[in-house]
Design a protein around this nucleic acid. Structure first.
Length: 515
DNA sequence: TACCCTTTGAAGGTA
DNA sequence: TACCTTCAAAGGGTA
């Protein structure tokens, strides 16, 4: 999340630490450490002032750890803090019935009318209503469908492994305006009550308020996404002596939140339906957002994570991994997992072909020339510029690392990039795609996958790695002939030609591919 | 029917 | 510490 962390107002890379919002606590620290956040997020923070006292605890990370370790003994310090949080929240953001659902009970002030960021300007608004979802669903990463009535056995299942214990609901008391201390006496299973009680969602069984993040362990989520209210169908629960563990989904990150909101818009504008293409557009739009705009989503995501932590103190992302591994629960079957593992191996095998290089932008240019770093280096990731120990391309392209190819990367890497762009070009959005907004980069995939230079400085290095990931996946999935062709061409090309290709926005690659 | 694709970000694991 | 992998949403496409 470069935009938020670009230190000193320059490009994102300035401070790698800019991985802001990585964690509430970390974020807080980063904010304090980085001048950027102080300035660029001043509005955000000011708008969040009320909440900052609440959620941006001195050390949110510690809060989580504390929560997780709470089962071993919740630190009094945290308890006090959370009590304070509860009190503050009681009189604050959650008093409004306008947010009758998790997690956006926690909607920050910026999303309130009197905030510095007006709701109208706030893109974090109603999303996917077209899908018959609650107007706030867009802000409800887990969807309001999770609040469908009657999940009966919740306590039983929830008290099982996945850390769905609710005895940390003293934390929730803050979010749900429960009297401090009152919730603390609630049993793990009972701690769910605050949800329904506080939400005032009529018709919901007090005990049946499922958390949106929880989905039935079986079945494809896509098919039951609007019926996830039930962790396990009663009949199934009865049938199965050992009900499958519910799957607690990961909290949505900022981009996911953004996607949920903007997807409908993109679909409407571009008449696209293919999610892959839509997501590409969304990714570009995401980079086109201003820092402030992105900050909203990061803040939402932060709160989302925070609430998720509080709801599932012992939950770990690993749980879902393990779900796939064990095949006991989770959306991923063993077969799926095996495929992923296979793909993983393929990736590793492919990466092994890359000799790698000790050289790094970080080391070569130093901190004083971070602007010359490649994207990954800015993120303290693997340098893509010296992968092959080759020459250093124009630093100006570093931010376009997603599309820029390393000077002379391994064939495999070229392959990845190649396929990436091939997809871009061969699977363009429908012609009905409307032109991008003035302030946005092309929303529709154009011949130049490059993000406009004007945005380059804000382009998160993640784009690079993300594309690499995508390319790697494509590598595993796509035939290699085009890759070989491109590789040969590129390997025979001079660095000048490559530079020209870059300058041409990869047109060379496309051309070579179509030849 | 199940998986793929595609995006960014977060988290966890590994060396 | 750096890097890698997986998962989160979404839904048309594909085998």
């Amino acid at each position: 999340m470069p935009q938020l962390s670009s230190g000193g107002g320059d490009d994102l890379g300035a401070n790698d630490e800019m991985i802001s919002f990585k964690d509430e606590g970390e974020q807080e620290e980063k904010i304090q450490e980085n001048a950027f956040t102080e300035r660029d997020l001043a509005d955000l923070k000011s708008s969040l002032v009320n909440e900052s006292e609440i959620n941006q605890s001195p050390n949110a990370a510690a809060v989580r750890r504390g929560q997780q370790s709470e089962q071993r003994g919740f630190p009094d310090k945290h308890r006090e803090h959370l009590d304070g949080v509860s009190k503050q929240q009681d009189g604050g953001m959650y008093k409004s019935p306008a947010y009758p659902g998790y997690p956006f009970l926690m909607l920050p002030d910026p999303y309130l009318p009197n905030s510095s960021v007006s709701p109208s300007s706030n893109k974090v608004s109603v999303v996917q209503q077209s899908h018959g979802m609650h107007p706030l669903t867009s802000l409800l990463p887990y969807g309001n469908d999770h609040f469908s009535p009657s999940p009966p056995h919740l306590p039983t299942d929830m008290s099982q492994k996945t850390g769905v214990h609710r005895h940390q609901s003293q934390d929730l008391s803050g979010y749900y305006s429960l009297p401090p201390g009152g919730v603390g006496q609630i049993t793990p299973s009972m701690s769910w009550f605050p949800h329904s009680l506080m939400l005032g969602t009529s018709g919901m069984h007090p005990t049946g308020i499922p958390h949106p993040a929880i989905v039935p362990p079986t079945g494809k989520q896509d098919h039951d996404q609007y019926d996830r209210g039930m962790y396990v169908k009663p009949q199934e629960a009865k049938r199965e002596k050992e009900p499958k563990k519910p799957v607690i989904k990961k909290p949505l990150n900022a981009f996911m939140l953004y996607m949920k909101e903007m997807r409908a818009k993109v679909i409407a504008e571009c008449t696209l339906k293919e999610s892959a293409a839509i997501n590409q557009i969304l990714g570009r739009r995401w980079h086109a957002l201003t820092r402030e705009e992105q900050a909203k989503y990061y803040e939402l995501a932060r709160k989302e994570r925070q609430l998720h932590m509080q709801l599932y103190p012992t939950w770990s992302a690993r749980d879902n991994y393990e779900a796939g591994l064990s095949g006991v629960a989770g959306e991923k079957s063993k077969a799926d997992w095996g495929k992923k593992k296979r793909r993983k191996r393929e990736k590793q095998q492919d990466s092994n072909t890359d000799p790698g290089s000790p050289k790094k932008c970080r080391a070569r240019f130093g901190l004083n020339q971070q602007t010359d770093w490649c994207g990954p280096c800015r993120r303290k990731k693997k340098c893509i510029r010296y992968l092959q120990g080759g020459g250093c391309p124009s630093p100006t392209s570093s931010d376009l690392s997603a599309i820029d190819s390393p000077p002379s990367p391994s064939p495999s890497r070229h392959h990845h990039h190649h396929h990436h762009h091939r997809l871009l070009y061969q699977r363009p959005p429908s012609p009905g795609c409307s032109p991008p907004p003035p302030t946005s980069p092309p929303t529709c995939l154009s011949l130049s996958p490059h993000t406009p230079r004007s945005h380059a400085t804000r382009l998160p290095p993640e784009q690079s790695t993300a594309n690499k990931r995508g390319d790697l996946r494509q590598l595993a999935a796509k035939p290699a002939h085009t890759h070989l062709e491109l590789s040969s061409r590129q390997t025979n090309s001079s660095s000048t030609a490559l530079s020209a290709a870059k300058a041409a926005g990869l047109s060379l690659k496309v051309l070579s591919e179509t030849q």
